[in-house]
Design a protein around this nucleic acid. Structure first.
Lengths: 355, 355
DNA sequence: GCCATCGTTTGGATCGATTCAAAATGGCTC
DNA sequence: GAGCCATTTTGAATCGATCCAAACGATGGC
């Protein structure tokens, strides 16, 4: 065994082979410039000393590139694997990194300062998953590495961001339901508080989450096209995890004329609604149609499969990863369109339910 | 704007503040040893120059620790997010890293050499997800960083590994079905080739995948306890992704006396079997009981929910992460037990089906 | 007034490589 | 054999920090 004390450095190999450090370096990085005989001698020495090649540490310092990109979120690290939306996006981010031979590092801001953070992660740039948390942007700016914000609330021209057209996506969703003849609709809103309340449009307009505001605007725009005033379409405050969807829906379905179409601001909430409707014995889409938002893979496996508007996960990931790795950076906030995904949870409005 | 050409180094700050570099370093790392007046002067200078703190690059070289652990697999990077088993394990790995303030980096060996690989990743150690691929171990050994192998085939004393008790888990699964009175069983084996064949026990004993061999041994052991010779229990070769499960099961269920209990070597295969049985109109667990293996979260959401033996994902992750970060390393292959998870897909054997 | 002590600060070595201008080498021509 | 050019090799600077032994200045005890 060679297991002596110190680790072997390039310099040791060079000495053992009787060449300069520069030449030894070339043997590993640009072998073609080194004469064959010397090259072999150095390789031999390396083998004899158990030297596996230049250490990434030293190389990093000199070359500056780590060849990895970091993805940061305010949530704990598990979030990247456990949350359906994050998972879906990360799958595409991973694919994009793979295609470019880049590595992928995960960073959580929740964890606290020690060890590993946006300030300390060894990466070439960041993707910031900031839902309402502009904090991440601030930290990343301080770090000084290139970054792209992913679900940014304030569109500022000097913050590069790749995002989705929430307004257009929501309008697409609402138009789909309206096109099927639905006139009694309800919106399942997120980010509007924890109580299963019915909330007023003004409250929605005042929320700090831009995507929530925009999605609502999109729904309303489609409703207006169909001649429906926004006041006629109740908005419920659902928790992000959908845990209070039952209590909220009960508010509507205990009334004499319950909605025939539900516009959920996320697939998660839509899926929770599907569960409650099944429990309650309401047929989907026979009695009630349910429309999601996001396009997470889980939606394909519900009963019935969830109709939704799908985020362009692949394009988002590719654009963001490309920006970090090769530029050019987005100038301000770039938005990408969503696509309508009609599956089984939406159908024609039941007869005799017109407005 | 300060945006001049060069980036600001600690040395620049020290100079600007009129102190030595050592003192400046202390201001950021051990502020308590620096006199307050000096400390403030340095901080002031840093602020004025737009210096955000010591760069991780330089620090790494000197201190040696990156505070991140790498997880490597032979599959492309997406695998970590897309595959149910990997996802489940990674959730726990992420949790364990979070708890210790460590970062998480993903490495794929498939990607190819350039850029980011086991050889070049900036991490403190590796978790190796090597299903049959001992190649990863070899590469990691060459790299010289601590590592723990996660589903290792050959138990060698000098390769630290954390693994599961495949034999015990399989025996648990089979005992469960036997305890419910099932006597006509079949094994849905993986890693036995791509054809939907019925294979002989000797072929199973000869496969290169240790976990497959061990699971089979576990099933057989339980069968022996119940007085059933292994020859009476057919073994089918199912593809890992379960895509040929229908063709394989048809072989059995077209016979006069089809099995009443299915022992699948993975949840993925079990879930595929569930799908086929539903299509074929066979009641689960009324006519056929299905037993999985792994305990992936998806199994909880099938119809009916899948009974299975669950891997101790959390313990595996915690043990492996702890080993890398704080030692001590496992001596050879440590195995952890699985637990029986009875859900809805298993029930008493139908009447009159005794052996 | 001398010396030991304590709290701060300094300077330089070190971590492990890459890079590049300059020097050495070798082959060829005239 | 001098001169020239192309190919290799060298040596030192550089990347950005941390660490540590030594120096320094102020204080207090005897």
């Amino acid at each position: 065994m060679t297991g002596s004390g110190r680790t072997i450095r390039l310099r040791d190999v060079a000495e053992a082979a009787g060449v300069s450090q520069g030449t030894a370096s070339n043997v590993f990085n640009r072998p073609e410039v080194v004469r064959e005989e010397v090259r072999e001698r150095v390789r031999e020495a390396a083998r004899a000393l158990g030297y596996a090649g230049p250490s990434p540490k030293g190389r990093l310092l000199r070359a500056g590139k780590t060849n990895a990109i970091g993805v940061a979120a305010a949530e704990p690290l598990e979030y990247f694997f456990a949350d359906p939306w994050a998972r879906r996006l990360m799958t595409e981010v991973a694919r994009a990194c793979d295609a470019r031979g880049a590595g992928l590092a995960l960073v959580s801001v929740a964890a606290g300062q020690p060890g590993w953070s946006i300030e300390s992660a060894l990466v070439d740039g960041f993707l910031l998953r900031c839902g309402g948390r502009e904090l991440l942007v601030e930290i990343a700016q301080r770090r000084g590495l290139p970054f792209v914000a992913l679900s940014l609330d304030h569109a500022e021209p000097d913050v590069p961001a790749v995002d989705i057209d929430d307004f257009g996506g929501a309008r697409l969703a609402a138009r789909h339901l309206l096109g099927l003849g639905h006139r009694r609709l309800a919106i399942l809103g997120i980010g509007l508080g924890a109580a299963p309340d019915r909330v007023q449009p003004d409250r929605v307009r005042a929320t700090r989450y831009m995507n929530v505001r925009e999605r609502a605007r999109g729904y309303w725009a489609a409703l207006a096209e169909a001649g429906l005033p926004e006041a006629e379409v109740p908005i419920l405050a659902i928790r992000d995890d959908g845990s209070n969807v039952g209590a909220a829906l009960a508010l509507l379905f205990d009334e004499p004329e319950p909605p025939t179409g539900l516009l959920a601001m996320s697939d998660k909430v839509a899926m929770a609604a599907l569960g409650w409707l099944a429990e309650r014995g309401l047929a989907v889409p026979g009695q009630v149609s349910v429309m999601g938002f996001d396009g997470v893979p889980e939606g394909a496996r519900t009963e019935p499969p969830l109709s939704t508007v799908e985020q362009p996960f692949r394009r988002i990931a590719e654009r963001a990863v490309a920006a970090i790795l090769d530029g050019p950076m987005p100038q301000g906030r770039e938005v990408l369109p969503l696509t309508l995904l009609v599956r089984g949870s939406t159908g024609s409005a039941p007869n005799g339910t017109g407005a």
